[in-house]
Every structure is written in structure tokens, then in C-alpha cells.
Computed example of a mutant assay.
Amino acid sequence: MRDKGKTDVVSAADLEADRVISAAIRTAFPDHRILSEEGAQTHSFDYSGPLWIIDPIDGTANYVRGHPYFGISVAFALDGVVVAGCVHAPALAETFVATKHGGATLNGTIISPSSPNGLIRSVVSTGFPHDKSDIEKPLRRVRALLESCQDIRRSASPVLDIAYVAMGRLDAHTETLFAWDVAAAGLIATEAGAQRGNLEAVPINVPVDLFGGEVVFSAPSIFQELMAQLA
């Protein structure tokens, strides 16, 4: 295990999972490009054409401590539009899959989000950045959630948090994330019927499907109320 930053780590398992997944993609699709969390520093962020987006282990801090809440995320996009995605939680034996206009499933069973009667009856998950230099924004988010919803969760694997919104274990998730966090999980959530929004403007050079800035995934019944509360 080595540090990526003051509070972020990468394990040998991250690197090996990245190698195995990337090798399989390159063998099957040698002309396709790959955007992976572990290789993001060398990526040109050209989203055109066929692109695979990988997070080999989301929730590394959980994984290295033996906590089962971590996931593997793989998505496929064409010209910035995510058309297929999979989030696999190996320690929980759960696999979430979605295709564009094809719905979403958990272990082969169709899933859909919850329908809470108001934000005050909702459980919302969130997260904190590894870079603590601007901690005030997430702290304001937590305060807004504590004042308006039933309870909050912070489980440190946003790909699973978003997938849980898709199937109703959570009512919403909000956090500032990266393309590899939202690509597969975002498709799973929206194909299941959840709503998606951003509290900050999407840059013109970044596809909406791959932008995670102040992103919100929510059960439809509380989406507008949650967006207003967090604005």
C-alpha cells in the first residue's frame, strides 16, 4: 500500500485489478481508450469515441481494513455518453448492471429507487474529499442534510452509495466526485429511475455523464426538495 495524498491510499490490489481489467479490455478492443483512476494523471481527457472508465477498487480504505463495503466499477462510453455500466461488490456478492435505455438490475433482478414521503423521512449518504484544504463546503452540506433529512450515512464507496440509491437502500447521495465514480453507478441509478443533477455548472468540455462536481442522485419524490436544500 502507498499514499496517493495525505489522506488517500492505493493498494497493490488496486493496481492489480486495474492491470487485469485494462488488459482484458485491450485484448478485446485494442482500438479503445481507457480512463482509470489509477492512470488518470496520464489521460488527455479526450472523451470522444469509445472510452472505458474504470475504478478498480472504490473504497480502498475500507478494503485494506477488511471492511466489505467497496466496489469495482467499469463503464463504457461512446462520445461521452455512457451506454453500459457495472458495479460489482465482491465481498457482498452483489453485481449492479445497466445499459442505456435497458434498465438496471442487481444480480439479474430489476431494481428501482425508493419513494420517501419528503426529505425529512429520507436517509441520504455523502462523502468527504481526500484533499481537506477546502473542508467548509462538505461541512455545510452535512449541516444542510442534518437539518432536513431523517439521517445521513458516510460509507466511503460512492459507487456503491449511488447503486444503493438505484435500488432503494438509500434515498439519495450527494458528493463531489470524479468520472470513474459516476460513470457506471450514474447510469445504474438513472436507468433504475433515480434522478440526477449537479449543484455546479457542467463545464462545456466535459460530458454530463462523466461530470461529478457536486453531483446529486436521488429518489424522484425528494429530488427537487433536496436540490433546493443543498443549493
Score class of each variant (00 low, 15 high):
residue 202 V to T: 15
residue 220 P to S: 01
residue 108 G to F: 14
residue 151 D to R: 14
residue 33 R to G: 07
residue 108 G to E: 08
residue 140 R to A: 14
residue 106 L to H: 11
residue 128 F to K: 11
residue 61 A to K: 12
residue 38 E to K: 01
residue 172 A to T: 11
residue 219 A to H: 10
residue 10 V to S: 09
residue 206 V to A: 07
residue 19 R to F: 07
residue 146 L to I: 03
residue 54 I to K: 00
residue 104 A to E: 04
residue 101 H to N: 15
residue 31 D to Q: 14
residue 189 A to D: 10
residue 175 E to Y: 13
residue 55 D to L: 01
residue 33 R to N: 02
residue 193 G to M: 08
residue 129 P to G: 03
residue 219 A to N: 04
residue 113 P to M: 00
residue 50 P to Q: 13
residue 32 H to W: 13
residue 129 P to N: 07
residue 116 P to W: 06
residue 215 V to F: 02
residue 91 A to E: 13
residue 193 G to V: 04
residue 171 D to G: 05
residue 84 A to D: 05
residue 145 L to E: 03
residue 120 I to Q: 09
residue 25 I to D: 05
residue 137 K to Q: 10
residue 199 L to E: 10
residue 138 P to E: 12
residue 71 G to M: 08
residue 213 G to I: 14
residue 72 I to N: 00
residue 130 H to Q: 06
residue 214 E to L: 07
residue 208 V to S: 08
residue 57 I to M: 02
residue 207 P to C: 04
residue 89 A to L: 09
residue 230 L to K: 09
residue 171 D to M: 02
residue 65 R to G: 06
residue 168 G to V: 15
residue 215 V to H: 08
residue 174 T to Q: 00
residue 64 V to R: 05
residue 112 S to T: 13
residue 91 A to F: 04
residue 77 A to L: 11
residue 75 A to E: 06
residue 182 V to T: 12
residue 212 G to S: 10
residue 3 D to P: 00
residue 81 V to T: 15
residue 29 F to A: 10
residue 77 A to T: 12
residue 11 S to M: 02
residue 138 P to G: 08
residue 86 C to N: 01
residue 229 Q to S: 09
residue 4 K to Q: 03
residue 128 F to M: 11
residue 20 V to F: 03
residue 4 K to S: 05
residue 43 H to D: 15
residue 83 V to P: 06
